[in-house]
Amino acid sequence: MLKLSINGKTHEVDADADTPLLWVLRDELGYTGTKYGCGMALCGACAVLLNGQPTRSCSLPVSAVGKGKVTTIEGISGAPARAVQAAWQKLDVVQCGYCQSGQIVAATALLAQKPKPTNADIDAAMSGNVCRCATYHRIRAAIHEASAIMAGKASDKLEA
């Protein structure tokens, strides 16, 4: 049995050591907001925060998580996360939505580090996240919007 800290809760899981964290989250624990896109650390659909750092859960064996604190899309919280989600909703970034958990996790990590990112910062931080619907144009705009929200220029409340 492995002990994992996910979204502030401790879970005990019975999984082979080589099982990627992604499949433990999705198939064992039911955190299906984190998506499978490539399985090879190429697309970012599976991004979660590990101790606050964006991490590709498809390529991280569950045994390597150790005492690390995992945060998934279901558990992200704090000012950057709230701002990102509010901005995403305000600009209606999503299309199919399948990549968006990963995009939001990556954008949250970026804003936690750099509350006022430039376009170049955004392109660098988000380059690992593929969106086949190509919502990139709005992702960029929404990150700037989130930055403004964090600076208190707009509300971070999600509409019902």
Partner: peptide, 13 residues
């Protein structure tokens, strides 16, 4: 606003 936005930004879709 899109009808599918909120579920897709919270991982619930």
């Amino acid at each position: 606003p899109r009808k599918d936005s909120k579920d897709k930004i919270t991982g619930r879709a």
